[in-house]
């Protein structure tokens, strides 16, 4: 399985739980106080409530519904308030996905048999992520058709405002995607971020326009 970008590192703010979708799989992303990034199926194993409604306790995630707590890293359930004396079944665990943080983005793979990460610039600033109501493959074809250099099936690069800009496409569902941009740090950040924001908005309008 390939790694796909699902969030910017800055989306995983302290004590927050971020919701992402990859290939139709709902994912809860959260950063523990020690920096560990967790990517879990967005569903409490107990009764199926989205864990992204839960509370990031710093080292554990607490489900909103019954207060069950799951440990950062292992995903193991470590507390069931309804039965404080236990025992907790050893198999009771949040379903985890492989996750890597690189270049200011967070990448998740849906299987354990993971392929290599895309090659990214060593120092880059993330641009505003752009959700698009079109499938990832259609956006990849459109970017290739616009002459952008392909660095992978869902990874393109272009030069804008004197900087190299990487565009990585997150296949969110069968009909939607999110474009994550990374800009080379050699450029001054704010003017380039504004330029890319306008450029990507106008591209999105064209992509989403019905023929």
């Amino acid at each position: 399985m390939s790694y796909h970008p699902v969030a910017s590192s800055r989306d995983l703010a302290g004590r927050h739980v971020f919701q992402a979708c990859l290939l139709g799989q709902d994912i809860a992303l959260w950063r523990a106080d020690d920096g560990t990034v967790n990517a879990w199926e967005n569903r409490c194993p107990h009764r199926g409530v989205r864990l992204s409604l839960g509370v990031n306790l710093g080292d554990r995630l607490m489900c909103r519904y019954h207060g069950w707590r799951y440990d950062s890293g292992s995903g193991a359930c470590s507390h069931i308030p309804a039965h404080p004396e236990g025992p907790i079944p050893a198999t009771l665990c949040a379903r985890r996905f492989p996750v890597i943080e690189a270049g200011g983005l967070v990448f998740v793979a849906l299987g354990d048999d993971t392929a290599a990460l895309p090659t990214l610039p060593e120092t880059a600033i993330p641009l505003r992520a752009l959700p698009v109501g079109r499938p990832a493959e259609a956006i990849a074809a459109a970017l290739a058709g616009a002459g952008l250099a392909a660095a992978g099936p869902l990874h393109f690069a272009e030069t804008q405002g004197g900087a190299t800009v990487h565009l990585l496409i997150q296949p969110a569902s069968g009909t939607t995607c999110v474009i994550h941009g990374l800009a080379d740090m050699s450029a001054e950040a704010l003017p380039l971020q504004r330029h890319m924001s306008r450029l990507m908005e106008s591209r999105r309008r064209a992509w989403e326009a019905r023929p």
Partner: peptide, 24 residues
């Protein structure tokens, strides 16, 4: 209401091991 609208799947699973029930 927000709990009910964020339970996945929306339909109640009746097949074994869909959820992890405890004594409560």
């Amino acid at each position: 209401k927000p709990i009910l609208e964020n339970q996945m799947p929306r339909r109640l699973p009746l097949y074994p091991r869909a959820d992890s029930p405890v004594r409560a």
